Simulated scan of single mutants.
Amino acid sequence: MKRNIVIATLTAAALAGGTVAAFAAGDEETSSARPGTGTGTGTNVQVVSDRDDDTTDDRSDDDAEDRTAVRSSGVTAAEAIAAALRHTPGTAVSAELEDDGADAGTWSVDVVRGDRAEYGVEVSDSGKVLGAQRDKDEDEDEDGDSEDRAELAALKGAKFDAREAAVAAAANGTVTEVGADDDNGAVAWSMETVKDSATSEWKVALDTGKVTQDHSDDD
């Protein structure tokens, strides 16, 4: 009789506490479950965690690949400048490759026309001109305007224009930026190149096309 009572008590306890035991077992699996073993909540938590990590890693890899593709594919700086000048004749004074956002892979080329009006010409990574917009910011002071005139005159009279300077600098990597640098009245083309993930700065002489590395921004 006593044995029957004990069995009945254990059975009742199992029925009443079965749900608690099941959740307790699930908690143990959450903390100790190994991939490919266990069932229920523990296994699901493990899978979700792994999936999140994989997604983050994939996204980082994609970003790195996008940066590399933008800098090494499509249209070169010289080709973008030539396309911009065919669309908007004048003097190209700068060019920059966009490397992020919706405009990644496009070139922005600044062209000054004969009337000194400046236009920003957008060139796609396939060489197609997407459009040109006039720069209406003409609020510079007289000294700044005078400096710009002198710099523009130097660029107009250069034996090596922006396109030719970009071709010369391309021997050192993929040109991603072209501009003019006025160092105490001595104007030269300023170039930025990328090679093997390293960025370098260069100067290209307006009269000879000689390329020298620019260390002025080094620490």
Rank of each mutant, 00 (worst) to 15 (best):
A69W: 06
S108K: 14
D181A: 12
N4F: 08
N184D: 15
G17D: 00
R67D: 13
D50H: 09
A22D: 04
A117C: 04
T106Q: 11
R116I: 10
A22Q: 03
L130S: 13
T88Q: 15
M191Q: 10
E98R: 09
D99P: 00
S73G: 14
T11P: 00
L152K: 00
A80F: 01
V204Q: 08
D196F: 07
T88M: 12
G42V: 06
S200R: 15
Q133T: 15
A25C: 00
L130N: 13
D217S: 15
G26T: 04
G74I: 05
A80W: 02
T212Y: 02
S190Y: 04
D110F: 02
T19P: 00
P35S: 02
I81D: 07
G144T: 08
D57M: 06
E96D: 13
T106G: 03
P89V: 02
T30R: 12
V45H: 09
T199P: 02
A104R: 15
T37A: 11
T41Y: 11
D207H: 10
V175F: 02
S200E: 13
Q213F: 08
V111H: 05
R67T: 09
G74M: 03
A64M: 04
G101M: 08
L206P: 02
V194L: 11
G114E: 15
A170G: 03
V204G: 08
V211F: 01
T199K: 15
A170E: 03
V194G: 04
T88Y: 06
N172P: 04
L130P: 08
T11N: 00
G120K: 13
R113S: 09
S32L: 10
D110S: 13
A162K: 01
S216R: 15
I81H: 07
E28S: 10
V121P: 03
A162Q: 01
A158Q: 08
S31T: 12
E29W: 06
D143W: 10
D61C: 00
V109Q: 05
D125M: 05
R51F: 05
E140W: 09
W189Q: 07
A22T: 05
E192N: 11
T9D: 05
G40N: 03
V204I: 11
